[in-house]
Nucleic acid binder design. Structure first.
Lengths: 236, 236
DNA sequence: GCGAATTTTTAGGCGCGCCTAAAAATCCGT
DNA sequence: ACGGATTTTTAGGCGCGCCTAAAAATTCGC
């Protein structure tokens, strides 16, 4: 009766913490050009820098991250593949929430953040099929395909566009809820046409060009490293 | 001991472990009449009895479980409400998987087991509305309504039906995947008409009565305490 | 009714992911 | 190029949910 059974381990969901690190590293390089250091990762993830170091070692041992003390973190090929898997799940869930479940494009991030770690491959595939294999999510972010391919359309970061530039919004980072809300309120969303009106120390003013005189504006913040959260198509 | 309160972190999803205990206790009393002891709970949940004791204390402190050393566990009113919440999520997810996502009724348990801990109230409500506020899931189990009400139709456990009894299957426990598979293979599912053909020491033979002479049979196991996993309507 | 069998609880550990504090390494301005 | 500022790593802990082993309580068989 007291036959020793194989020790069982706690399996919360998957390694959702590890997946979050991979996803965040990938995401950072998607939007920012500066290196991914422990402090950067720590502040975007809301954890202590020492926690990053610790996880970096673990991920490095697992062959997912290239880690050397005091150097920036990068993903290995395998790490990139895993990160894209998480991001695929995230973006398909966001798309599903908007297309079928009555969510608005700026409300879906948090829900997807949780579900991306618990949805099965089978259910994800069913959702993907139902949606007709979409290529991009409600924020305009490309959805990696099942085989890991990413089709991203050429675009320009708003912070790199000079005053006077006009273009179509193709992508808005889903990371900052309050920004999404203010953009949504200002009528700016993926596919909106915008013009860069002025550029100040820490912000860029954008004006919607929809109905000619309808000059609603919105302040789009730019990070310290000079990056914004919006990509526009290099139209005109 | 510690006077200062530095922000605590680590919140996996909710207290999914606690929710599992509540759900399992509730579920047990739904199907079985014997008391819920630590050993019973330990074996159905696949954990050590000592883990149950530990969690029982925690849940008791939280006012969800009535616990006294060496006595069976019962749920408090609050505990019942919380358990029904989890079960509502579980069963709505199962229903959704079958009705909209192309799953078969015997395949949905594991997926729901995971998602029930991560789905938000809002998304759950959206699913509930899409499905038209169903009263029961694909296994015939009643879905508690948002306010905690449960409408269960009067039924009879197969183990309590005498030989010769005929009735309609109204509920099949979703706990045992292999049983579900064999029942599905034997053509037995909710709404199937069955007749108790014989009753042996540890099993009950059931015959489908669908097309008169089509006498497919299935062996339905009965637990040590004399309970089966199927309820039939007390028809005829 | 009593000792044996069984169940339950207690005691002590473990891995995970996180933390703080302090030490070590790197970076940067003059 | 040097020393202070900053970043990163190390060291040591914590809570959670689980485990095993052993002690304590209860239950069962005769």
């Amino acid at each position: 009766m007291s036959i020793p059974e194989p020790a069982r381990r706690t399996q919360p969901n998957a390694d959702s913490a590890a997946e979050d690190y991979l996803k965040t590293i990938y995401h950072h390089t998607e939007w920012q050009s500066d290196p991914v250091t422990p402090s950067v990762l720590a502040s975007t993830m809301g954890v202590a820098p020492s926690s990053v170091t610790e996880m970096a070692k673990k991920l490095s041992a697992a062959g997912l991250v290239n880690y050397e003390p005091y150097k920036p973190l990068t993903l290995t090929a395998e790490g990139i593949a895993r990160a894209r898997g998480v991001i695929r799940r995230h973006r398909l869930i966001e798309t599903w929430l908007v297309d079928e479940m009555g969510y608005d494009w700026h409300e879906v991030h948090d829900e997807a953040e949780v579900l991306e770690h618990s949805i099965s491959e089978r259910l994800l595939d069913a959702i993907d099929a139902r949606l007709g294999h979409p290529r991009s999510d409600p924020h305009g972010d490309p959805i990696p395909s099942a085989d890991g391919t990413v089709h991203s359309s050429p675009a320009l970061l708003l912070s790199q566009a000079g005053v006077g530039t006009t273009g179509t919004v193709v992508r808005i980072s889903d990371r900052d809820p309050s920004l999404l809300l203010s953009l949504a309120a200002g009528g700016i969303r993926p596919s909106t046409t915008v013009t860069v009106v002025s550029q100040e120390a820490e912000g860029v003013v954008v004006v919607r060009a929809g109905s000619a005189t309808d000059a609603t504006g919105a302040l789009v913040p730019v990070t310290a490293s000079g990056t914004s959260s919006i990509w526009i198509s290099s139209a005109i």
